Simulated assay, not measured.
Amino acid sequence: MTRWALAEPARWTLLYGTPVQGDAAPAETTNAAGTRVTRRVLEIAADAAWEGGDQAREGVDQAREGGAPAEDAPALAPAVRELLTQTLAEFDVDAAPETAVRAITVWSGLVGVLSAHLFGQLGADAVALGEDVLRPQIEVLADVIAPR
């Protein structure tokens, strides 16, 4: 994704740039394609949670059942928990809402990091470094889902 964004900044901007106010793309033709990457990030986060061992699986099951989530889990308001549960079900991803929060945070961070770079918000010196300046930021984001 990073290489594609750097090679295709105009296309990146079309997909992830500031939307035109009042313009709404037709959901029937854009939702499936527009959520493909988000779904994949959710799947990666779910896989990481399941691969974390028995404690991670127990934490996922407890959180899903409304029990006490893991100690390092983000606090979720009931309405947020419900929305995330519905989203995970729609995407057919077996994960706890807390896992979804991590995935969405990483996805939002990745879009932000790439956009800041492509739109020159990190400065000309950072832009000149290309992927080298992006790599450590992306590694930090990846650690949110699967700490090294």
Rank of each mutant, 00 (worst) to 15 (best):
R11F: 03
R11N: 14
W12I: 12
W12R: 07
T13C: 11
L14D: 00
L15Q: 06
L15W: 00
Y16N: 12
Y16H: 11
T18R: 02
T18I: 12
Q21S: 00
Q21H: 03
A24N: 07
A24Q: 12
A25Q: 09
P26C: 07
A27T: 11
T30K: 03
T30M: 13
V37D: 08
V37S: 04
V37C: 03
T38P: 10
R39S: 09
R40E: 08
R40K: 07
E43P: 02
E43N: 04
E43K: 02
I44E: 00
A45F: 06
A46L: 04
D47S: 12
A48D: 06
W50R: 07
W50F: 06
E51K: 04
E51S: 13
G52N: 07
G53Y: 01
A56I: 06
A56L: 06
A56E: 06
R57M: 15
R57T: 14
E58R: 12
E58H: 12
V60N: 12
D61K: 08
Q62R: 10
A63N: 05
R64I: 15
E65A: 15
G66R: 01
A68N: 14
P69N: 01
P69L: 09
P69A: 06
P69K: 01
A70F: 03
E71K: 15
E71T: 13
E71L: 15
P74Q: 10
P74N: 10
A75V: 07
A75W: 08
L76H: 03
P78V: 09
A79Q: 13
V80R: 03
R81F: 10
R81T: 14
E82W: 04
E82I: 09
L83G: 08
L84S: 06
T85A: 02
T85P: 05
T85H: 02
Q86S: 15
Q86R: 15
T87L: 09
L88C: 08
A89P: 01
E90L: 15
F91L: 11
F91Y: 08
F91V: 11
D92C: 06
D94R: 01
D94G: 10
D94L: 09
A96V: 01
P97S: 05
P97T: 04
E98F: 04
T99L: 04
T99E: 01
A100F: 05
V101N: 00
R102G: 08
I104P: 00
I104M: 09
I104N: 07
